[in-house]
């Protein structure tokens, strides 16, 4: 496969070249279409999940903010807003916990000569691999026995454990390109290890830490199985509400919620991409 088609290409080569691109285009369409389609649908004035004739005619009558108003409690139902605020409490707490512990451990694991490094890494990444239903069933049994089941703290603890692998992966990746002679230079000039960490190492690995934190945040913000089993009525998060809504009577408010979540993920993706490009540029790996 060539990047550009040479002028002497045969018909067969041309068919192959364009066919390949059309196929890839269709796959890209398949990837992005379901995510983007919810955005126009969420402005539907009717309670339908498809485009109404008015919408197709681009008639303003066909569009409204009805579903967004319902999300904000215009119909007297504040459960969505309540769920949203629960999510906004749980996710940052879980992120804080996994980022602080995870960064510390990633620094430890990046030292030369760590005993059992492979085993420790395998253990720390396993929450990402073990199916969520198993993790949450186990957490239900164990947290019940220590009276954490059905508490906010229990859910935060569980979500923090799920976020750990992402922090470990991103921070160790950033640390692998960290020049350790910088910390030695700082120590040489009389800085103690804590000062060295905050003044030298932390600013340089910060992009990795933030990316890891965003991954941990989205993991908690998007998690539903653990909340179903470990949480109780007091910890209904946004995904919980969506899951219940989708399983039972599917309400069009979900379209508005989905759109809000898509916007949030676009914002997070942009942040992570900018951070990645910045650190690549600093390391001279990318043309910018």
């Amino acid at each position: 496969m060539a990047t550009t088609l040479p002028p002497y290409a045969t018909t067969g080569q041309k068919i192959w070249y364009y066919g390949f691109r059309v196929f890839c285009g269709l796959v890209f369409f398949y990837l992005i279409f379901p995510i983007l389609i919810v955005i126009p649908l969420s402005f539907n004035a009717q309670d339908f999940f498809t485009f109404t004739p008015e919408m197709l005619r681009l008639d303003p009558e066909g569009y409204s903010l009805k579903h967004y108003k319902d999300f904000l409690g215009a119909n007297g139902d504040y459960s969505w807003l309540q769920a949203f605020s629960n999510s906004l409490i749980i996710a940052p707490l879980a992120t804080l916990l996994s980022v602080s512990l995870g960064t510390l451990a990633a620094i430890g694991l990046s030292q030369p000569h760590v005993p059992f490094k492979r085993q420790i890494m395998a253990l720390l990444i396993s929450p990402m691999i073990v199916p969520l239903i198993i993790t949450s069933a186990g957490m239900f049994f164990f947290y019940s026995s220590v009276s954490l089941q059905g508490t906010l703290f229990g859910v935060v603890l569980a979500h923090a454990a799920l976020g750990i692998p992402f922090v470990i992966i991103t921070v160790t990746a950033t640390l692998s390109s960290f020049d350790t002679s910088l910390t030695r230079a700082a120590a040489n000039m009389g800085a103690d290890p804590v000062t060295t960490f905050f003044k030298i190492q932390m600013p340089l690995i910060l992009p990795g830490v933030i990316s890891g934190g965003l991954f941990a945040f989205i993991t908690s913000f998007d998690e539903v199985v653990v909340v179903l089993l470990v949480g109780s009525a007091g910890q209904k998060t946004l995904p919980w509400q969506m899951f219940i809504g989708l399983r039972e009577q599917i309400s069009p408010t979900i379209l508005a919620v989905a759109t809000i979540l898509v916007v949030i993920s676009i914002a997070l993706l942009t942040t992570v991409e900018l951070l990645r490009r910045r650190s690549e540029r600093l390391r001279g790996m990318s043309p910018g």
Binding site: L31, I32, V38, D222, V262, S265, I266
Partner: peptide, 19 residues
């Protein structure tokens, strides 16, 4: 285009398909 789905909530993608 590959990363956006990766970052989008699993529930959003599932509900999009359901719809």
């Amino acid at each position: 285009l590959v990363l956006l789905p990766f970052w989008t909530s699993l529930l959003v993608r599932t509900s999009a398909w359901k719809i």
